Amino acid sequence: MGEVAHLSTDGTDGNSAAVIGGTVDSASLSGERPPTREEAEAILDRVVALYQDHAAAANPAGTHEISWRIDWDSDAVSAHVLLKPGEDWTIEVSKGYLTASSMTTEVFALTMCHEMGHFIGGFPFKTSRGGHNTGALGTSVSSEGQSDYFATKDCLPRLWANETEANAAAFAALDPSARERCTTAYSDLASQQLCGRILLASLQTGRFYEEQAVLQAPRELVYPRFDTPDTTEVAVTKEGHPAPQCRLDTLVAGAVCSVKATGTGIPGFVPPYGEYSDASEEDARPFACQTGPGARPRCWFQPDTVVTDCSELGQQACVVEDGVHGVRYCDTTSGVSYYWCFAHEVCKASGDDFADCYAPDVDPEE
């Protein structure tokens, strides 16, 4: 059975920026537009083509291929990836995602690189996916923060490397403090200009993330900025979506990290597959900046995460304490936790070891 490995509703009604530092000149935003159907399909074709060799090389070699699909009947604002044993790694996008009022071609390219990052980005993975993230799939689903980092560190530099005129124009649109991030990170003008375009797209995407987050959970709209980094520090690496400011910080870090992934391997995809382990972290270390402005921000990434050994307990199991049924979960990064059933329920495990609370007369296999 296929697993929906990631579901995001990353859209906003904000536009992009032509003058970027800590502020955005709203008067410069009117010229942005979402991609046409043909442009969206072309972007997906190009992003997928960049990494077909990674899928082909994944174990077992030659059995995986990356594909994409746009659901033109869905108005939901959705982009996600699917992994199925022995089948394609698929990026699926809804019509509503493409037509979100804040969508631009640059945001679409970046977020499709983010979706590709779930396949290719590597460690740290979404360890909570447990048994679904096995070697049989050829990869494990990268965490949300890692997918953001991959998008600007590895994917967009490959996608836009030869678009020199667009890169130069974006670099010129940055204010001096933003341009300085790129001139400090890279010594040649072409790389500086490419970095500038990625920073421009990152701020557009940060606005995109913020506005959709407010739609999902209403609060005051606070756009992420380059000069207001998230100063929080997590105790363990966060696998889900970080806050919009943290996500912008991660996109910026990827843009200025000069350490690029090489080869067709997936960084950190070593036994135990998809787990937060020392072996996985060490395998991925050469493919990311560990210190400085290009390092993954601590608002989601904690390299000193304490790992829990779940091999004896399993991912989940039924437990009974003092006559109360419950489900015990074990996650390598968040440890052991419990969910207790209501008084009229009992815990039952299905054939695939999925445990949950049911009424006594319910068969979990039906």
Rank of each mutant, 00 (worst) to 15 (best):
T90D: 09
T262P: 07
S67N: 12
E281K: 15
G11A: 11
T134D: 13
T105I: 09
F208S: 07
V306N: 10
L137V: 08
L110Q: 01
E65K: 12
C347N: 05
F287S: 06
I66T: 04
K260W: 10
R46P: 03
F301K: 01
T99D: 08
L215Y: 15
L251D: 00
H64T: 06
G145I: 07
V24R: 00
V336A: 05
G145H: 05
T104A: 12
R225G: 08
Q216N: 14
Q52N: 13
G145E: 05
D75M: 12
A61V: 11
S74M: 08
A172P: 07
T23A: 09
A170I: 04
S142P: 07
C182E: 02
V362Q: 15
D322G: 14
I120K: 00
D352A: 15
E65N: 10
Q192P: 04
R219N: 14
E211A: 07
V270L: 07
H80F: 12
G62F: 11
C257V: 07
Y338L: 09
I43R: 01
T250K: 03
G62T: 11
F342N: 13
R179M: 11
S140V: 11
T291P: 03
D25F: 06
S143M: 14
D249I: 03
V327E: 00
R158L: 11
C330Q: 05
Y186K: 01
D309K: 06
T262L: 10
H132V: 06
L83Y: 04
M112P: 00
F301H: 05
V346M: 09
I70L: 07
G31E: 09
G206F: 03
A261V: 13
G131K: 10
M1A: 12
H241I: 09
D278T: 15
Y209R: 14
G263A: 08
V47H: 02
G21R: 01
S8E: 05
E92F: 09
D25C: 06
T184V: 04
C341F: 05
A235K: 15
T164W: 13
T90C: 08
S311D: 12
V77D: 01
L50Y: 04
F125D: 00
L156S: 03
I66F: 05
S147R: 06
P157S: 10
I266D: 01
P229W: 09
V141P: 02
V214Y: 15
G240M: 03
Q316I: 07
F123K: 02
P157R: 05
D188K: 05
L248T: 00
A178N: 03
T127L: 05
P271L: 08
A185E: 00
A161R: 15
S140T: 08
S128M: 09
K95R: 14
E92R: 04
A217R: 15
N59P: 08
A76G: 07
C299Y: 03
T291M: 11
L251Q: 00
A178E: 01
T205Q: 06
W340R: 10
A253T: 10
G265I: 12
G292F: 06
T205Y: 02
Y223S: 12
V307D: 14
A317V: 11
S258C: 12
V19L: 11
